[in-house]
Amino acid sequence: MLKIGCHLSISKGFKAIGTDALKIHANTFQFFTRNPRGSKAKEINPQDTEALLKIMAENQFAPILAHAPYTLNACSPDEKTREFAAQVMLDDLARMEYLPHNLYNFHPGSHGGQGADIGIRQIIAQLNNLLKPEQTTTVLLETMAGKGTEVGGTFEELRWIIDGVTLAEKVGVCLDTCHVYDAGYDIVDDLDGVLAKFEQVIGLDRLLAIHLNDSMNPKGSRKDRHAKIGEGSIGLPAISRLINHPKLRHLPFFLETPNDLSGYATEIALLRNVYEE
């Protein structure tokens, strides 16, 4: 069965987001832990989280994916920005334990000109300070498009981070199809080659989720502009090969395309139609 969902808002609460997922025939979803451009998080309602867990269990949901706010930058040249990132992630990981054994994704950050080596060491330091042996949440590093001074535009940079984390068993990777294509990885004409590279550098056992997006820009553009499925430079045939690939088809896929709820329903139906059961 295809494990497919999209990005949904938790503004109405966790039970509501689970209900919205069912309405569009999703069996997982992604959500922001708080305002994606800010720091304020909604207070946790234990009864609401229990209601979501019940929906997930009854409908055989795949793991869900929480997304850190875009303002989180663990490798900023500014110390206060790094401290803010640590505070947010600490709070997010504590909140995620209300929804145990799920996934938490974050952008590695932008080093701001101080160099990738310094930025990566700062990311490693934050993860080593925050990850706990008792946590049930797996933290995912997202593959990035490599624009500007972003860290994570290559598989090698992600491997460097993982190698420095003491509790490396708590860390995995979320592959964003738009990002890796924009970073120069040819998932359209050489998907097997890209996966072989990923296996060689990181290990496919670390790949735990996929952001499924088309791209508004050509391969190697380093632009990071998501397009609706089948309406970008990646295209539906390549995306169909990706969701059906024997090394990927078991993973949960999360749409981050420019859509409303009805648009996501259309895309999910399209993807279920091309998925080979």
Rank of each mutant, 00 (worst) to 15 (best):
C6D: 00
E79V: 05
P36S: 13
K247V: 06
G119Y: 07
N105D: 11
I124A: 07
P252E: 04
A57C: 06
D20S: 15
N128G: 06
A41R: 13
F32D: 03
Q122Y: 10
T257K: 12
G146W: 10
R222W: 08
N259E: 12
G193P: 02
F253V: 03
Q47A: 14
K228D: 09
T81D: 07
Q135G: 02
R225L: 14
A62F: 10
D117G: 05
L90A: 14
I162D: 05
F31T: 06
G153R: 01
A168P: 00
S233L: 15
A227S: 15
L2G: 04
I120K: 02
I268R: 12
D190V: 07
K23H: 11
N217K: 15
K40Q: 09
H179D: 05
N129V: 02
F14Y: 15
S76G: 02
R37W: 06
K42H: 10
T166S: 12
K147H: 14
I210E: 00
F198E: 01
K147P: 13
R272Q: 15
E142Y: 10
M216V: 10
P108S: 10
T257Q: 08
L53I: 09
H67F: 01
Q135F: 15
D190P: 07
K54N: 10
E231Y: 05
E277F: 14
T154M: 02
G5S: 08
G232P: 11
G148C: 13
I239D: 05
I120F: 02
S9F: 08
T137S: 01
Y98P: 00
I234C: 05
D186A: 00
A68V: 05
Y181T: 03
C6F: 05
C174R: 04
E267D: 05
L158T: 04
V194Q: 04
I229N: 07
V139E: 03
Q87P: 01
E58P: 13
G220T: 00
F61A: 01
D189A: 08
M1S: 13
W160H: 15
D186R: 01
I17L: 13
A209E: 07
S110N: 14
I124F: 07
Q200L: 12
G109Q: 02
H101C: 03
R82W: 06
E169L: 06
E256H: 02
D224V: 00
H111V: 02
G112M: 09
A41I: 03
N217R: 13
D48V: 08
D91Y: 07
R34I: 00
H101V: 02
G13R: 13
E50T: 11
T136F: 09
M144G: 02
Q200N: 14
